[in-house]
Design a protein around this nucleic acid. Structure first.
Length: 797
DNA sequence: CCTCGGTAGCTTTAGACAGCATGTC
DNA sequence: CTAAAGCTACCGAGG
């Protein structure tokens, strides 16, 4: 089918596509058009990666926009939202406006409602629905990318419920669901009342197979010699062979450590294939990588990149990942060893894909579990760049002949699994039942069950009772925690229930937070403890005054609050390593007075384990909020820069929720919670909060200013400019901007010289001392560097 | 004394959404 | 129901 023959599409589109080199539709695209995607028909397209799904979505969205409606494109990842929006911006020249909305990014300029095409994550769409976004009623078309993720036990239910709500709210809404090839695309189509295109067609050839011994065994029965030769590993030999042909390779492994070790090995191969120009470019890239973060992770990555290889996993900072992905697309980095981050993320195709590890540790299963066929096929799908590679090749690695045969049966010739809804689980229903009632989607138990009856789960289950049973359990839980009220069949959300729904936290997190804040420190009058009065000194004069006003509950400490939000189901747990149990059990005892709520006993195994794991997270957050540098934190907790950022972000979000809940319930500690949140947000100690609130002043600059005697925003306005300039290490432009942001009358630095007496020595920064800066436990003694941070420690002792 | 290689035993284990209001070194 | 790679400490041989 030619693009000129597509009905319903705006008239400028065929020419635009022709300019892009698209004259003829791919077979699955043509089939989608025949089923009416461009004329408002709902459709499930179950097709391989890179077989033109995006164009199918565009045909649907553009014809919807052309007939006066809006289109919504739902993505599973924030990073994908940006990528998709950039693709759709090609249509802005025809007057189609595009907006993005994710948790950390909102389209600038006009309000979302004025956009024709909106790209958002499923959670953000859910949240927008909960918060009453009006433009939803103008939607004509919704595209759901990677719908097979409804199978995901954590995030799948959100997508499932959100699609259900959109369909219920907007009559005749066109739903275009794009899926990887799955075992039961027909069931998805049934659920969405949609037409089905189920195809395995690909624009470029993908050969799959297994490498065993000295040869690549391919799915068409052929073999291709590929000797391991002098190489250490099969993957190294494959990378070498691919490079001989000018291609790049993606190697999937099952752990971060494996990714790093593999990258180091592959770098020995890739370095042999670099020319002088590439070496120079890679040196520059390595320097950029080191610049991103001062951690071992960052250094190791740079070392590999200098030699033309890289690793990729969630411990990397976002900038790291972006740099690596971009360099790989530019063919500068020749091989990447990656965890599954890369299989699901932004588009990074390679000539060859190697799935080195096909089993992954699963604690619940008690050992290594084989990857799903669907997951392996997703990795395979990264092989072959349309228009650039002549073909793609994806292989698994076998050690034995038996394994060779097993891998062929298990993955090469196997059909992907069926997608199964995970909705009927308490954690999922807890949040969605509350939101469904709070937003008025359902006002009765019957109405709620009717709504749930339209979900994928209901169409798939052979135990219809189960959904009802779990729903009743969840309703009881929500009522018990005062988020919901029941009156016979009637359901209504309480004020706090509404708030919890809008804040988008798990009701169980909210309940834990509320309980912790209400009960307060587990030991009475924590601040009157053992003379080490570290906790009260965090409080400002006005707070102490407030306490004198008859409120005799001590405020929770930041550490107590960090622990509280860290033990919430919304905070991903940090692993306890060997020795950690003892270390954090000791910390739990030392800081017992600060911890909020009832501590579990050491004999309640699972709870105690969670308690300690949360304590580890809390300590990390406290270190961050005590200006400990990234490098030390990464080393101390065995995490990467990406993990630190992730924890901090989640803590910020949950502490914001805690603050709002405290205010709503009149708990009085909202200001203390706010300060704890600000400290995590800025990564500073109490005394820098004011300074770090000035734009362009972060934890480092604030500390330097403070050490130079400038302790507040007001000081900054009246400060001697030469002192400010010296504290900011002589950066005139920065100093001007900072003064301007602080509200200085005349920020100009013209004619000002840095004050030679002001020492901007970074060692003046507070180092590794922990926030209480007092107890001399062995574990801390070694990190207390002589003389560091004297100026500020006084405030804590 | 140092280096290299081999090995036994121990340790560790993927990912990433959301609120709100604006911005690091 | 189900593990395995990588790292470390250690040993012995060779230079």
């Amino acid at each position: 089918m030619r693009v000129t023959d597509v009905p319903g599409v705006p008239e400028w589109l065929p020419e635009h596509l022709a300019d892009e080199g698209i004259q003829e539709l791919y077979p699955p695209q043509a089939e989608a058009v025949e089923r009416g995607v461009a004329e408002g028909e709902s459709l499930v397209a179950s097709v391989p990666t890179a077989s033109g799904k995006t164009l199918v979505a565009e045909l649907a969205m553009l014809s919807a926009v052309a007939s006066g409606g809006k289109a919504l494109y739902i993505v599973p990842l924030r990073a994908l939202a940006g990528e998709k929006a950039r693709e759709f911006e090609q249509f802005e020249q025809y007057g189609v406006s595009v907006g993005v909305s994710t948790g950390n990014y909102e389209s600038d300029g006009d309000w979302l409602g004025s956009r024709d095409v909106i790209v958002a994550t499923s959670e953000k769409v859910d949240s927008l629905l909960r918060n009453g976004a009006q433009w939803v009623d103008d939607l004509a078309c919704v595209v759901s990318d990677e719908v097979h993720l409804v199978d995901d036990s954590h995030r799948g239910p959100t997508l499932e419920v959100t699609l259900g709500k959109l369909r219920q709210r907007v009559a005749d809404l066109q739903v275009v669901a794009l899926s990887a090839t799955v075992g039961n695309a027909d069931e998805l189509a049934d659920w969405l009342d949609a037409e089905l295109v189920d195809s395995s067609w690909r624009p470029i050839d993908l050969r799959t197979g297994v490498h065993y011994g000295q040869a690549l065994h391919l799915d068409d029965g052929t073999q291709r010699e590929l000797p391991v030769g002098g190489h250490d590993t099969q993957s190294a030999a494959i990378v070498d062979d691919t490079l001989d042909d000018g291609g790049s390779t993606l190697v999937f492994v099952n752990s971060r450590r494996n990714a790093e070790a593999e990258a180091a090995r592959l770098a020995d191969v890739t370095r042999q294939h670099l020319d002088a120009e590439e070496r120079e470019a890679l040196d520059g890239l390595a320097a950029d990588i080191r610049e991103v973060s001062d951690t071992e992770t960052s250094d190791d990555l740079a070392d590999a990149v200098e030699r033309g290889a890289a690793y990729h996993h969630a411990g990397l900072a976002r900038e790291h990942r972006e740099l690596v992905e971009e360099a790989f697309r530019d063919r500068l980095v020749k091989a990447i060893a990656a965890t599954p981050t890369l299989a699901a993320g932004v588009n990074t195709p390679a000539r060859r894909v190697v799935v080195r590890d096909w089993r992954r540790y699963d604690g619940d299963a008690g050992g290594m579990k084989p990857l799903d066929v669907l997951e392996v096929h997703q990795m395979f799908g990264r092989a072959g760049r349309p228009g650039l590679d002549p073909y793609g090749e994806a292989v698994l690695l076998a050690d034995t002949h038996d394994e060779l045969e097993e891998l062929f049966d298990r993955y090469v010739y196997a059909e992907p699994e069926a997608v199964r809804s995970k909705l009927a689980a308490e954690p999922a229903l807890r949040t969605h039942v509350l939101a469904t009632v709070a937003t008025g989607f359902a006002t009765t138990r019957t109405g709620l069950l009717d709504f749930l009856d339209e979900t994928l789960y209901a169409t798939q289950t052979d135990d219809p009772q189960r959904l009802e049973t779990v729903t009743d359990d969840v309703l009881a839980y929500l009522a018990r925690n005062d988020f919901l009220e029941r009156d016979g069949d009637q359901l209504s959300a309480t004020r706090s229930g509404h708030l919890v729904s809008q804040l988008y936290v798990d009701p169980m997190s909210a309940a834990e937070i509320i309980h912790g804040l209400e009960v307060g420190p587990s030991v009475e009058s924590a601040s009157d403890g053992d003379g080490d009065d570290s906790e009260t000194s965090f409080r400002t004069a006005s707070e102490l005054a407030a306490d004198d006003d008859g409120d005799d509950d001590p405020d929770p400490t930041p550490f107590g609050l960090y622990h509280l939000v860290s033990r919430t189901p919304d905070m991903y747990e940090l692993y306890l390593r060997s020795g950690d149990r003892e270390e954090y059990a000791e910390l739990a005892y030392e800081r017992e007075a600060e911890l909020l709520g009832r501590a579990p006993s050491e004999y309640e195994d699972a709870r105690w384990e969670d308690w300690l794991s949360a304590l580890k997270t809390a300590k990390l957050l406290e270190d961050w909020a005590s200006e400990l540098d990234e490098e030390r934190i990464a080393e101390r907790y065995g995490v990467g820069p990406g993990d630190i950022r992730g924890k901090v972000e989640t803590a910020e979000w949950l502490l914001n929720a805690a603050e709002r809940l405290a205010a709503e319930l009149d708990l009085g500690c909202a200001p203390a919670v706010r300060r704890a949140r600000k400290r995590v947000e800025y990564g500073v100690r109490e005394e820098l909060l004011d300074l770090a609130g000035v734009r362009e002043v972060g934890r480092k600059r604030a500390r330097r200013l403070y050490n130079a005697g400038i302790e507040s925003r007001a000081d900054l306005r009246e400060a001697d400019k030469s002192v400010v300039l010296a504290a900011l290490r002589g950066r005139r432009k920065t100093a001007e901007t900072v003064l301007e942001n602080a509200g200085h009358e005349n920020p100009s630095m013209e004619g000002v010289d840095a004050d030679a007496d002001t020492d901007a020595d970074p060692n003046g920064d507070v180092g590794a001392t922990s926030a209480d800066g007092s107890t001399d436990t062995p574990e801390r003694a070694g990190t207390d560097e002589s003389g560091s941070g004297q100026a500020s420690l006084g405030d804590f002792e």
